[in-house]
């Protein structure tokens, strides 16, 4: 598989799995308004995933005409080891604090990445990133305000944020740690990491949350198809219908 295909799938998988996780909140949000907010973000991410999958499918079909990849076969008929999403996106939602924190880390990453991608030499990636950037800008705004609100809120909200940081932080390193195929995509990962750090530091300061000490070790593997046990369960639920009743539609 060539690197552009793998990279496009990686971008698509990130959006799909994160979007799917958020969709689990639908009907369970702490308030009607926040339920809708998170479902909106979920749909935005699903839209991004579709764009990336459609592009990946066209690349796959060009490179080997015998295959008939579509956005659906890519989303529904690949196994866990063929998914290249970051581990952060597949983590369980936990409580509201953990969901918010995951979203904030992820959206900040997407925001700075898409800034670079909208200058990319690949016309399709460039176009998708430019379109998605508006959505992601809002996701960053929404999630950072929640981080500030919870971090600088009540004793309990702070305790839950600290707990969420403990749970999630070790998965953030992977976001800006370039895999082999990413290195070929002419993206400045040093800049990406620096920008991500700057945004997170700023919001954590406002939220009066301690920034965890920098460590050289972090959880990794998702970008290469090595996942936590959580992804299997996500796919089981998400892919069940297509696998049990192939090509069914409604």
């Amino acid at each position: 598989m060539n690197q552009l295909i793998q990279y496009t799938l990686h971008l698509a998988d990130n959006a799909l799995i994160m979007g799917h996780r958020n969709s689990e909140w639908c009907g369970h949000g702490p308030a009607l308004e926040q339920d809708i907010a998170l479902s909106n973000i979920s749909l935005d991410l699903l839209g991004q995933a579709r764009n990336f999958y459609q592009y990946a499918a066209s690349l796959i079909n060009q490179s080997s005409p015998s295959q008939e990849a579509t956005e659906d076969t890519l989303a529904y008929l690949r196994d866990a080891h063929e998914f290249y999403n970051c581990l952060l996106t597949e983590l369980p939602n936990g409580d509201w604090a953990q969901t918010i924190l995951k979203q904030f880390f992820f959206s900040t990453y997407q925001y700075h990445l898409y800034q670079q991608l909208q200058q990319h030499s690949d016309e399709q990636l460039k176009a998708i990133a430019a379109k998605a950037l508006k959505e992601v800008t809002y996701h960053v705004r929404w999630s950072s305000e929640w981080v500030i609100r919870l971090g600088d809120g009540t004793e309990e909200s702070k305790r839950r944020m600290l707990q969420a940081i403990d749970q999630v932080w070790m998965f953030t390193g992977e976001l800006t740690d370039a895999s082999d195929y990413e290195k070929k995509m002419r993206i400045d990962f040093d800049l990406l990491q620096q920008q991500w750090n700057t945004t997170v530091t700023k919001i954590f300061e406002e939220a009066s949350l301690p920034l965890p000490v920098k460590s050289n070790w972090h959880q990794a593997g998702g970008k290469k198809g090595i996942h936590t046990e959580h992804l299997g369960f996500i796919l089981a639920e998400m892919q069940f219908l297509q696998r049990a009743y192939p090509n069914s539609q409604w």
Binding site: E33, Q34, I36, A37, N40, Y138, R141, W142, E145
Partner: peptide, 13 residues
Amino acid sequence: QMAMENARDVYTR
């Protein structure tokens, strides 16, 4: 701030 964002999410989708 939250009211503005909720309004955006609930009423301008």
